[in-house]
Design a protein around this nucleic acid. Structure first.
Length: 701
DNA sequence: CGGCCAAGCATTTTT
DNA sequence: TGCTTGGCCG
């Protein structure tokens, strides 16, 4: 298909900064990929082009699509990666300038970081428990604003009120930074901030990167934070900076994204050209009418855009009013069934979106009941799951005994009598003699006053790690090594013993199998030596899913956030009630909420707008048909509570919606709970536990 | 040190 | 309502 005039303007644009305001479904990726192809055609060297995205998935897709246009050989020369990956590569290439011991550093994910903070809080013995996530969020905000702990403290004290969490965060921040440095580790924020710091400190280093990358393209620009803007400003002196985004889809302010980056782009990069892509090629007119109505009420500063439909016709958007969540779920499932059987829809054409993952339960059950295959997006990232991290930590220690963070993680996992006291003794012993912790662990008899149980625990751990190390030396495939390790360390027993239910244990074991599969796949493709494997493990923190599925034909269940960038012919949005969408937390502030640094007060109004944009994102996922569902009553910690319709729903003019009521199964409401459970079991007609429960082989005694 | 029980509390989560 | 967390006791 031909490009429209705005699209070609963006593709053809020559020199100088440009902001492409790409409304939902306006062919943004196409514009970016065609633009890259165009640059290459004009003789720009592929090596001088840098395209940054936020997710691995987005960068993979972009890379692939450019490859289709220009050939994979040329595409390989391009740098298409996530912001964080770029930061990592810069830091990795500049270890000398950074003054790091050795060339490797660790990358700490969220749980590593909260672990560090938990430890610091324990040392501070504040006598009260805190939400570590809230503290981390504040530290993260400060870091991204390049406030040192002192400057931050100063700013906070002179400025308006500081709350309790600010106080603690101030106390923790410098210790947290010091701890990271002592582990020679970077957190995700550091991957960006430390690049900026380095470049500011060392103009000569910056100059090298500037000459290398003369064309920079950034996707989803509305999601960038202050540090990323700084990085871009430093790198973009050639002024060939092109950013693409949509301020109306800014939904990550709570994670530190600063929508002002996209609003003020023209100020940050003087003389910028602005192109608006307002033609929508995704959704039918009735869907877009609703989307535009939602935006019409948006407050705050915006780059005003109105989506223009190109796909006319189509059904009115349905407003489905359900008696309760079970009715809602059965409506969704029944309607999905109808679409599959009568309208020729494939499962992959259907998505169910919700504000909070908590809402997925009934839908999941209702779809399963009808044997409809589902795929869930969201939840804890694969590589952040505890058991996965435990196994990785073992492997890391076996490959590098100096990795103290990983060692501490596995020291007493599974439990082997090395508690807090024993760890403290081991650490004290090591520090006093200037040894690494591992050395102390391998010679427990030398450690003063270590209990004999703990000593035995150390010996056991050393045996396991040592056996693993030898396997690596013999060059066994990594999957095989990991499998043996699982047996040696007794993961299975611990998981079975430590899980509340069989299905939980099965799920966790399944995650380990998933990790083994990742290893196997890697083993099969050429593999590489121990060092490469160690590096691979290190990079897992930056990777999301175990890169499976995708191609599977299933109904998608996703949080609204998780659905960004996706599209489906049929979309159900559920739970459109006050308190859920917008979420309660957006309506009333909580002490643990971290206000984005530099934010202009009025936090509450701010977040309501973000909720509205989130609703807009959800609506614009739909191509052909959209169902907006709400329940008249919904459980809130156990009790069924009446619910009022979401204000966003009320903002949509009535004539744009087709309203229908769902009363639920006419089956006389005898005993709801019993009838419900019984009918579910009857419908399943097979053992509900056998479904996703891999057989757990018993280990020989 | 580890297991058990009770209280508290519960968004969203690209890297 | 169901899970995590922390405190207490064996």
């Amino acid at each position: 298909m031909q490009l429209n005039p705005s699209q070609s303007a963006a593709v053809e644009h020559d020199l100088g900064p440009m902001l492409v305001l790409a409304g939902a479904g306006s062919g943004k990726t196409r514009v970016v990929t065609e633009r890259i192809a165009r640059l290459l055609q004009r003789g720009v060297s592929a090596r001088s082009i840098l395209a940054m995205t936020f997710t691995n998935k987005a960068s993979a897709e972009m890379h692939e699509r450019v490859g289709k246009l220009v050939g994979s050989k040329l595409a390989r020369e391009l740098t298409v990666c996530t912001f964080h990956r770029f930061g990592l590569d810069v830091l990795g290439a500049e270890t000398k300038a950074l003054g790091l011991r050795g060339s490797a550093f660790a990358i700490f994910d969220q749980s590593d970081c909260t672990g560090v903070i938990r430890e610091i809080l324990r040392e501070l013995r504040s006598g009260r428990s805190y939400d570590v996530g809230a503290i981390l969020a504040r530290i993260s905000n400060a870091k991204n604003a390049f406030q040192t702990s002192e400057a931050w403290e100063e700013a906070q004290r002179s400025g308006k009120g500081i709350d309790e969490y600010d106080e603690v965060a101030m106390l923790v921040y410098p210790r947290y930074q010091a701890a990271l440095r002592s582990f020679q580790a970077f957190d995700f924020d550091d991957l960006i901030c430390e690049v900026v710091n380095l470049w500011k400190r060392r103009p000569d280093v910056l100059e090298r990167w500037r000459t290398r990358y003369r064309y920079v393209i950034v996707d989803e620009y509305q999601d960038t934070n202050h540090a990323q803007l700084e990085l871009l400003r430093l790198l973009g002196t050639h002024r060939n900076v092109v950013v693409v985004g949509d301020d109306d889809q800014s939904i990550y302010a709570w994670r530190g994204a600063d929508v002002r980056n996209i609003l003020d782009f023209e100020e940050h990069f003087g003389g910028a050209k602005v192109v608006k892509l307002e033609h929508n090629y995704r959704s039918r007119a009735p869907v877009l009418d609703v989307a535009n109505a939602v935006l019409a009420r948006a407050g705050g500063r915006r780059h005003r855009k109105t989506l223009i439909a190109t796909r006319m016709g189509g059904d009115k958007v349905q407003h489905v009013i359900c008696a309760d969540p079970d009715v809602e779920a059965s409506f969704v499932a029944t309607e999905a069934m109808r679409l599959l059987e009568r309208e020729g829809a494939r499962p992959r054409d259907i998505a169910v979106l919700y504000r909070s993952n908590l809402l997925s339960g009934p839908i999941e059950a209702a779809l399963k009941e009808r044997q409809i295959p589902i795929r869930m997006i969201g939840g804890t990232q694969f590589f952040e799951r505890k058991e996965v991290k435990d196994l990785i930590a073992y492997l890391k220690v076996a490959l590098n005994p100096e990795d103290e963070m990983s060692l501490r993680r596995i020291l007493n996992y599974p439990a082997r009598a090395i508690g807090d006291a024993a760890v403290a003794k081991l650490a004290a012993h090591a520090t006093a003699r200037d040894l690494i912790l591992w050395t102390a662990v391998s010679r427990p008899h030398a450690v003063h006053e270590l209990s004999s149980a703990a000593m035995e625990g150390c010996r056991q751990l050393v045996r396991i790690v040592e056996a693993t190390r030898q396997r690596f030396e013999r060059g066994e495939p990594s999957a095989q090594i990991a499998r043996a390790l699982l047996v040696d360390a007794g993961f299975k027993e611990d998981i079975v013993a430590g899980s509340t239910s069989n299905s939980a244990a099965a799920r966790r074991w399944g995650n380990l199998e998933g990790l083994l599969n990742v290893f196997t796949r890697r083993d099969e493709q050429g593999k590489g030596d121990r060092e490469q494997f160690a590096n691979f493990l290190r990079l897992l923190a930056l990777r999301q899913e175990s890169e499976e599925e995708e191609a599977t034909d299933r109904v998608t269940l996703s949080s609204m956030h998780g659905s960004k960038g996706l599209e489906f012919p049929y979309v159900f949005v559920i739970g459109l009630e006050e308190g859920i969408m917008p979420h309660q937390r957006a309506l009333s502030e909580r002490a643990t909420d971290a206000a984005p640094s530099g934010g202009e007060g009025e936090v509450v109004g701010h977040s309501i707008d973000e909720e509205r944009r989130l609703f807009y994102v959800a609506v614009t996922r739909a191509k052909d048909r959209l169902y907006l569902c709400r329940a008249k009553a919904r459980g809130s910690r156990g009790k069924l509570v009446p619910r009022t319709p979401s204000r966003f729903l009320l903002d949509v003019p009535e004539e744009l919606l087709a309203e229908r009521e769902e009363e639920g199964p006419q089956a006389p409401e005898i005993d709801k709970t019993k009838a419900g459970a019984a009918s579910v079991l009857a419908a399943l007609s097979f053992n509900p536990f056998s479904a996703n429960q891999p057989v757990i082989p018993r280990r020989r005694p």
